[in-house]
Design a protein around this nucleic acid. Sequence first.
DNA 1: CTGAAAGCGCTAACAC
DNA 2: GTGTTAGCGCTTTCAG
Lengths: 355, 355
Amino acid sequence: MAERSEAENGNGAKRSVVTIHDVARHAGVSSMTVSRVINGAKYVSKEMQRKVTASIEALNYSPNLTARSLKSDVRLGALYSNPSSSNLGAFLMGAFRQSGASGCQFLIEPGVTEEEALEGLERLIEAGIGGVILPPPLCDSARMLEKVSAAGVLPLSFATAIPRDGVAAIVVDDYKGAFDMTRHLIAAGHRAIGFIQGDPKHSPSQRREQGYRAALAGAGIRIEPEWIAPGLFTYKSGLDAARQLLGISPRPTAIFASNDDMAAAVSAVAQGIGLSVPRDISIAGFDDAPVASTVWPELTTIRQPIAEMAATAVAMLADQVRNARSGGTPKAPHVREMLTLVERNSTGPAPGAGE
Amino acid sequence: MAERSEAENGNGAKRSVVTIHDVARHAGVSSMTVSRVINGAKYVSKEMQRKVTASIEALNYSPNLTARSLKSDVRLGALYSNPSSSNLGAFLMGAFRQSGASGCQFLIEPGVTEEEALEGLERLIEAGIGGVILPPPLCDSARMLEKVSAAGVLPLSFATAIPRDGVAAIVVDDYKGAFDMTRHLIAAGHRAIGFIQGDPKHSPSQRREQGYRAALAGAGIRIEPEWIAPGLFTYKSGLDAARQLLGISPRPTAIFASNDDMAAAVSAVAQGIGLSVPRDISIAGFDDAPVASTVWPELTTIRQPIAEMAATAVAMLADQVRNARSGGTPKAPHVREMLTLVERNSTGPAPGAGE
DNA sequence: CTGAAAGCGCTAACAC
DNA sequence: GTGTTAGCGCTTTCAG
């Protein structure tokens, strides 16, 4: 055969991907050395490291994640309660990317009702998963947790507000997020701040309300009972809550909704009755879901780094499963992710508060 | 440890997954036979087939997709122009699931601007992809297509309205979708139907407008120029268009927006000026994005089966890459996906049209 | 029609 | 520090 820059098999088919062996040959070392450089890079001489790195650059090598995962064969699953949720994109993005890096397979099953989620879990268990990611409200369901542990599968609570001992969790400080947002509103001169509760079945709901209450209390502001409206995290429930809150007199100068869907509804209702946002009324949401930057004006909200959280969840669970398989002591760490306030155009100074 | 039903290795670590060999042993055949049964099932005796199937059932075997893909080592990429898009979730769901089934790796790079998309493409090429999925407007960009083919990567146009010869494509009949929706509105008694255009840079935009125009023409209705408002697929642009369209007198009894984000904006504006949807005005969208079932009333829209389309795209591209590698003649099929009208609560009979 | 052997790309485990 | 060996679960030859 003649010379060629790419490897080629007998069929004449191009094998366009560079393997670890190609790099090894190019660098004049064994593939094992290359492997070591790619990974820990412990116990490798500076010299080797340099050579190998150069060859990787030269050949434009990138490891085959599939082959890597074949070794450990860890399968992880996730149940997603709200398949049409706008968070799903970010969640999948983070989870899948990390599953490559962590060398494991990642499966997902939708399921809007608990019944469907249970069926999805069934399928995941049959597929041989070693761990499963449970977002709210699934992560707070006793039935769910029970079934998971009965199957010998490691659970991970995703974005729960009430982590449990013995269950790994990605924890988010809903309390602090709501507290910060409320303080932000107070700092802008708002005193009468309405609040729309989240779905009581989701653990973050209560924590968000507590944060709101604490911030107001801390500022010495007494909360009028009528400032609090019930909600279910849906746009529709936000509509109802908005009508209630905007009917109060004197009207609150700001409304803080427990999520963005409801905040968007408030914005629609407010503008519907001729109010200018944020000049007449400020509106804040929670989550930084896509809708927050879709509606106009764009919503000031608390950003949950869903993609990063999903990536962390996958990495943690993969470690846990490997650890458990090699007989290690089970640890179930709780990792806390930071929430950040992102200010957009739906909030501003309170009317008459001076600039 | 107490009793356990699962296999276990010397370390005491559970190997929870059943392999093809376990099945083979259980059925008293070679693993090759099992493999054949799982796949084509060609050249296998009925007898074997039965035995193997039974064992698979009994052991609850499911093949390890990772191992399967290791053989062919096909890497596919996708560029996603709108990472915060609500379609992303469905897209990823479909693509990733199929990538497992098709035995290939799937990588995705975000990129809102063409510049960023080009960088993402660069990374994908470096990662050694054999094919790439391009949604609009990327699939209609000459620069993009040029760079892709220069790298020897097979492109696939996703949901384009103007497929090209020699480039595989998932085609969607935007014309027919818009035509059907317009007919639907006409059938409900509407005569004055406003239309909001999509982003002119996206190929589906023109086709949707053509479908709208054709349906009206077919019903012998003359389109008033003022019924057509420009839009950019964004909520904000929908707001502007809605104000324009709702200011016309006599006011259209229905407004058909080129996507759901804009339709949602129309709904907000309409309700804002005291109109009841759909009693006073009907509103229709396109895409069936999550927002369509988020807002209230929920939007009548044209559903694009994004997840299925993504799955088809991955399957097709994987085949293409394998085919090309084994020196096959390149075919670039165009697959047409069906659009369906989903009627929800934002449309109804035209006012005064009788029930 | 069925099975045995080889190997996909990578990395533990063990030499040297 | 570095290389060798073996093997992850599956499928593609190639013999029978």
